[in-house]
Simulated assay, not measured.
Amino acid sequence: MKKRWWWVIGSVVAVAVVVVLVGPWFYAKFLHGDQPEALGLSDSAAPADASVEIDGAWTVGTGSKAGYEVWETLQGQRVFVRGQTEKVSGNATIESGKLTAGTVDVSVAAIATDDGRRDFQFSNTVMESAKFPNATFTVTDPVDLSALSADGAILTVPISGELTLKSETRPVTADFKIRRAGEGIEAAGAIDVTWSDYQIEKPTMFANIIVEDAGQIQFSVVLSKQ
Rank of each mutant, 00 (worst) to 15 (best):
K2T: 09
G10L: 09
V12D: 06
V15W: 06
V15E: 04
A16C: 05
L21F: 13
F26Y: 15
Y27E: 07
A28E: 10
F30K: 13
L31S: 10
G33H: 10
Q35F: 05
P36V: 11
E37K: 13
A38S: 15
G40M: 04
G40R: 08
D43M: 03
D49M: 05
V52S: 04
I54S: 08
I54C: 07
A57E: 14
G61H: 06
T62G: 05
K65M: 13
V70A: 15
E72H: 12
L74C: 05
V79N: 14
V81A: 08
R82F: 01
G83S: 09
G83A: 11
G83H: 05
Q84F: 03
Q84P: 00
E86H: 12
K87A: 09
K87C: 00
V88W: 03
V88D: 02
G90W: 10
G90L: 01
A92M: 07
I94H: 07
E95Q: 14
T100F: 07
A101G: 13
T103S: 10
V106I: 14
A110N: 07
A110P: 00
A112S: 13
A112F: 01
T113E: 04
D114R: 13
G116P: 05
R118E: 00
D119Y: 06
F120D: 14
Q121P: 00
S123Q: 13
N124L: 07
T125C: 00
A130D: 15
F132I: 03
F132S: 02
P133S: 12
N134E: 15
D141R: 12
L145Q: 11
L148S: 14
S149N: 13
A150I: 02
A150P: 00
G152S: 05
A153P: 00
A153G: 11
T156V: 13
V157L: 07
L163C: 08
L163M: 10
T164A: 04
L165W: 01
L165R: 05
R170C: 01
V172M: 08
T173Y: 02
D175T: 11
K177M: 05
G182F: 05
E186P: 03
G189T: 09
A190K: 14
I191V: 15
D192W: 00
S196A: 12
D197W: 08
D197S: 07
D197Q: 11
D197H: 09
K202C: 01
F206C: 01
A207S: 13
I210G: 04
E212F: 06
E212M: 06
A214P: 00
I217N: 05
I217T: 08
Q218N: 10
Q218C: 00
Q218S: 14
V222N: 06
S224M: 07
Q226L: 08
